[in-house]
Amino acid sequence: MFEDFAYARPESVAQAAQLLQDETAHALAGGSDLLGCLRERIFPVKTIVSLSSLKELRGIARTAEGGLSLGALTTLAEVAGSTEVQTLYPGLAQAAAEVASPQLRNQGTLGGNLCQKTRCWYYRGDFDCLRKGGASCLAVHGENHLHCIFGGDACYMVHPSDTAPMLQALQATVWVAGPAGDRSLPLEQLFMPPAQDPTRETTLQPGELVTHIHLPPPMAGQQTSYRKVRARRSWDFALAGVALAVIIEDEIVTSCRMVLSGAAPFPWQATQAEALLTGAALTRERVRAAASAAMQGAEPLTHNAYKIELFKGIIQEELARLVRE
């Protein structure tokens, strides 16, 4: 079924980084994404590097600053069920709980969720897709019902992760270990825009792996939420999702981060909507205007213009919940 591969289970992060330097070596966390890719032979895999012995990548801990550090191997079920996450960043607990199905949340890890490949059916299926080395993106003129309305360039995938937009709204930092040691980067810089390289999903260099996600302590009065619409109510990716981190003081929005899933090849920050909301009172008119602003510049393909209405709808719905009347 699979191509022959070697299996390694390094005992240290440094060892893992060493092994992952080869382009055809792939990290194995929960395997819920990688195994499917192996079965479909989407990319060549010569070495599987299991992260299962790296205990330090597991679990949730408080940081000195009062935020949280989430190990890359923490399962999505653990993220969703963590009291600390639920208390400090309820939106993240929601986002993790909205992923896939209970079985997949028990198996899938946060790191894997961020580094997973697109679910585009031209990529996963038996098609000659650009991301797999084909001549061009078949979705542009094809069955692009589920594809992006922002940020498409050469490839028109949507980023599949539900946790990524929420983490971005929370201004998460990603810690990465590599052959040259550790480094950190803002979460948004983890994702590779197709305009830069349509064959890679992340900006990780050969040998690098995600070790932790750091969340800054929640700001006073911060409200977070994640709302997702899908074609069926479980075991399904987002058609559209919106992650919000908002602070309202005396009826005025003092801070707003809004990041969309299902919109672009990477979590899509709705900066125009954020700007429109920040410093303003959250009225019904403002909510509608923000929803429209979020969709400004959208470039729908043949079959996905509905996403514009859909995003406006969920953004309105989510913001309306914050309006105090």
């Binding site: 059916w121 031209y122 996963r124 299926g125 038996d126 098609f127 078949l138 003129h141 094809g142 069955e143 019902h145």
Partner: peptide
């Protein structure tokens, strides 16, 4: 859902 250009099945899982 069939890919209109090739006639191949898109949603095969």
């Amino acid at each position: 859902i069939l890919d209109a250009a090739s006639g191949k099945l898109c949603n095969r899982n």
